[in-house]
Structures are given as structure tokens and as C-alpha cells.
């Protein structure tokens, strides 16, 4: 008997569609088309797609999802893959890397980073930090900070002295005015983040681990 190329399996997280990663792509498509047209499912169900060690180009991925969703019985909610390209990997590394800038960011200067950045020094008024990830200022933040510039809404801006003129996170802009009581009263050790309502909020640095638990990458004892 021919080896089965498409496995359908029910797990506790729902239906998983596992595709063979050794056969030819054309064969896989053929069998998949057959399999999904067989039916046997009532109503619409969410399935996760597991493509194993096969690398699918973006248009191939779209094609497969289209085939699965065609009969209107299944909706692909997630795609699992064990492989990524070198480019994707490098982009990931860049995103996760943490740059360090030692010195004072003065008026008119712009410091950019693809991932997180730590500023060892002050950010003076009209100085600007732009980062793809989070911004941490060990000195006084008195200028402009733009975290998550590529659209990461999980990014935060933290400073040991938090007195910026403008805070941007992803596409949200906040002009700091004196009406912010928490900042007016004590500017020490604050951070800014996007809250559940999509606005920028501020809290004490101690709250970061509760509000953004994923930022913590190191366990403690």
C-alpha cells in the first residue's frame, strides 16, 4: 500500500493536519485535495497545519491553505513548521539582539536599533531613540522614544528617570503633558506600554514582570 501523505489527527488542542515532508510537493497537493473532499466533518472546524521539515514558499503555503479551506469545512488557524530560512533567522536574531549605546543622546541626534537598545547615559530634550524592540534608558529620558517602530505593540519604554517629551510605541503616539499625575509626582523608575485599550499607560518598573512577563528571559533562584 502506498504511504499515506496526509494524516489527520485529533489532539486535545483540536484537529491537526500533518503533511508528509519527504514526498514531492505535487503528490502532496494531489492527496490533500482528495482527502479534504472526502468530507466526514460536520460544520466548520479549526485545524492546525503541521508541515514538518518541508520548507514552503509563501505562495505554496497560501495554496495549501486554500485547498484545505475550499470545501468550507475547515479553517486553518495555525501553521507549524520546523524550518525557517537563513534570512528569517537573521531577522529574528536582529530583532532579539540588544544594542548598547554609551553616551548622551543630545538634541538633534537620532539613535536607531533593529532590536532592543540600552542607553547608558541621558537622552536630552529633542534627542531621539528609535528601536524595533524595547528601549531601556539607564540615565534620564528627557527626549523622544519610539519603541516597536516596526509595529511591535508589546514593546516598552523604560527609564530610571522617566521624563520624555514624546513616547511612541508601534503606531501609538503620546505627547507627555503635565497632566500625567504619576509622572509629575515621581519620575523615577517608570515604563510606558500599550494597555489593553490600545493606549499608552505608565507604571512602576516593578510592574514590568506582571504586565510583560515574556520580557523575562532569565530565570532566577
Amino acid at each position: 500500500m502506498k504511504k499515506q501523505l496526509v494524516h489527520m489527527k485529533g489532539t486535545k488542542d483540536g484537529l491537526v493536519l500533518r503533511l508528509d515532508d519527504q514526498c514531492a510537493y505535487a503528490e502532496l497537493v494531489e492527496e490533500l485535495e482528495k482527502k479534504v473532499s472526502e468530507g466526514g466533518i460536520d460544520g466548520r472546524v479549526n485545524v492546525s497545519l503541521d508541515i514538518g521539515y518541508r520548507y514552503l514558499l509563501e505562495h505554496q503555503k497560501q495554496e495549501i491553505i486554500k485547498i484545505i479551506e475550499q470545501p468550507g469545512k475547515m479553517v486553518v488557524s495555525k501553521v507549524f513548521s520546523n524550518v525557517i530560512t537563513v534570512d528569517e533567522n537573521n531577522a529574528k536574531i536582529k530583532e532579539n539582539q540588544c544594542d548598547t549605546y554609551v553616551g548622551i543622546v543630545r538634541s538633534g541626534q537620532v539613535i536607531q536599533a533593529p532590536g532592543d537598545i540600552i542607553i547608558v547615559g541621558d537622552v536630552n530634550p529633542n534627542g531621539k531613540i528609535e528601536a524595533g524592540g524595547n528601549i531601556f534608558v539607564l540615565g534620564k529620558l528627557k527626549g523622544i522614544a519610539h519603541a516597536g517602530i516596526d509595529g511591535n505593540r508589546e514593546a516598552i519604554v523604560a527609564a530610571s528617570w522617566f521624563e520624555p517629551t514624546h513616547v511612541y510605541i508601534a503606531d501609538v503616539i503620546e505627547v507627555m503633558s503635565n497632566e500625567k499625575p504619576i509622572i509629575k509626582e515621581h519620575a523615577e523608575q517608570l515604563f510606558a506600554y500599550i494597555n489593553k485599550n490600545g493606549n499608552i499607560s505608565y507604571d512602576r518598573l516593578q510592574e514590568v514582570r506582571n504586565i510583560r512577563p515574556l520580557l523575562n528571559t532569565k530565570g532566577g533562584s
Partner: peptide, 12 residues
């Protein structure tokens, strides 16, 4: 002082 900050940045 603001302009001095800018010029120091350029001088650096």
C-alpha cells in the same frame, strides 16, 4: 542650553 546641547552633540 538646548542649543548648547545640540552643538556639543555635533562637536563630539
Amino acid at each position: 542650553v538646548r542649543d548648547a546641547d545640540r552643538i556639543i552633540g555635533l562637536l563630539e
